[in-house]
């Protein structure tokens, strides 16, 4: 069976992998010929944190997340299962209680445990919540590995921009067209919106972290994800806007102040990169599978690209090849 996949973000690549596993002939068409900043997966945090996300996400996300984590664990050597640490400064302590009340799968840490887990933070934070089952990965490395694997197994990558303009509808002899363009498909999916996010990469040798840390704050919730070689990813703002460029001074200032509040050593860190993009999301912030003819669109990953994409890809393949309708994510099935 011939499958065309449009889009090479985390969603497109996971779909390509899933169809390949079922012995389909897969082609990936994307706007860029390399893995780069043109897709918002490039800017992802790479936290696989179904428990923490449960604070504001529907239970479906946790279910998809647990399933997806197995995929990443098998695929990428940089998958690290070290849990997530959730902290609050003493003045924001009530937020930690709120967070605990609205989530599951955590354990409360005493100061001796903090010392064992994150010695650099123990002096400043004597309590927190540990979500021990959670993991993280490096998104760019993982996507790179996925592309390499797909190419070595014969998947063809074609560069072409498909912009949905009138008269420019994509047509193909493929049996299924899998549309994974994210906000690039906004013309076809008018209920898709953008949620702008800004992030930074910084470098410091003065502090080390073994796991993602979330610092709760009433207005500026922050996470820091450790990457290899002293690099940290700091993210991310959530602004109701389709704007995909223009990181604002205020956002960067807030993110960096929060990092500084986590540990003053971040004050001396080097800023490597400031990134900005918009996440594709539907109104309930849940992903969707939609069929229109032989086009299947997989979209609306919101801030859960890495957490949801492998599980969504499996549903997409099972629908296309086995006719199994995934009721929990499919809201249109027009033959």
């Amino acid at each position: 069976m011939k499958i065309d996949i449009i889009g090479s973000g985390v969603s497109g690549l996971c779909c390509a992998h899933a169809f390949l596993e079922r012995a389909c002939e897969v082609r990936v068409i994307s706007a860029s010929d390399a893995l780069d900043s043109s897709c918002c997966s490039w800017w992802a945090g790479g936290m696989l944190a179904p428990g923490c996300e449960g604070e504001s996400a529907e239970p479906l996300i946790a279910a998809l997340g647990v399933e997806s984590m197995k995929f990443w664990q098998a695929l990428t050597p940089n998958y690290t299962r070290a849990g997530t640490l959730v902290l609050a400064t003493s003045r924001d302590r009530p937020l930690l209680d709120n967070f605990a009340r609205n989530t599951q799968g955590w354990q409360k840490l005493a100061s001796t445990q903090m010392q064992d887990l994150e010695p650099d933070l123990a002096e400043r934070f004597n309590s927190g919540l540990l979500f021990a089952d959670e993991a993280h990965l490096d998104p760019r490395q993982s996507l790179g590995q996925l592309i390499e694997q797909l190419k070595s197994r014969g998947v063809e990558f074609t560069q072409r921009v498909i912009d949905d303009g009138p008269g420019n509808e994509y047509s193909s002899v493929a049996d299924w067209i899998i549309d994974c363009r994210g906000l690039g498909a906004a013309h076809q999916l008018p209920d898709l919106r953008g949620v702008k996010g800004e992030m930074l990469h910084i470098h410091s040798t003065e502090i080390s972290l073994s796991r993602p840390v979330r610092l709760l704050h009433p207005r500026i919730p922050l996470y820091i994800v450790p990457r290899a070689n002293g690099v940290f990813m700091i993210g991310a703002t959530m602004i109701e806007s389709t704007e995909r460029s223009r990181a604002s001074v205020r956002s960067v200032l807030e993110l960096l102040s929060a990092a500084y509040a986590l540990h003053p050593a971040f004050g001396e860190a080097e800023i490597i990169e400031i990134g900005v993009d918009a996440r594709p999301a539907f109104n309930d912030n849940l992903p969707r599978l939609r069929r229109r003819g032989k086009t299947l669109s997989v979209n609306g990953m919101y801030r859960h690209g890495f957490l949801a994409a492998p599980a969504m890809a499996r549903r997409c393949v099972e629908f296309a090849l086995d006719g199994i309708i995934p009721k929990e994510v499919m809201d249109e099935n027009t033959p």
Partner: peptide, 27 residues
Amino acid sequence: PSPAILLDAIAASRAGIVTVSLRREAG
């Protein structure tokens, strides 16, 4: 948590007025 929940909450509140911020969203 999501715009869908926001709309449901507005309906449940029966509020006639909703405040919106535009400083950051305006872009």
